[in-house]
């Protein structure tokens, strides 16, 4: 049986989706699915944005154009001096 990095990531995704499922099933009792999904995805985008800032991950050129991150003051790298653990 193959237990490689890909399998670990897949199991990590399954675990994370299960946690998200549990939390959202609880939250959905207090709002509508679309509003709940919008709130949840806003937090997801924020989390991924913060992780990208912390890790110093780079965008491909076309993605920088789409996200408006191509000008120096708004580039992901441009934030790195303010993030203590960035590479």
């Amino acid at each position: 049986m193959v237990i490689d990095v890909a399998v670990m990531f897949a199991l990590g995704a399954a675990f994370s989706y299960a946690v998200a499922d549990m939390a959202m099933r609880y939250g959905i009792q207090h709002t509508t699915p679309f509003v709940g999904s919008t709130i949840g995805r806003t937090f997801s985008v924020t989390t991924l944005g913060v992780l990208i800032l912390l890790s110093g991950a780079t965008f491909p050129a076309w993605a920088r154009i789409i996200f408006g991150c191509s000008w120096p003051g708004c580039s992901i790298r441009g934030f790195s001096p303010f993030v203590s653990c960035s590479g």
Binding site: G12, A13, F15, S16, Y17, V19, A20, D21, A23, M24, G27, I39, G40, R41, T42, F43, S44, V45, T46, T47, L48, L51
Partner: peptide, 9 residues
Amino acid sequence: LGGVAGAIG
């Protein structure tokens, strides 16, 4: 919680 877990997922 769901959003953070979904992002990691």
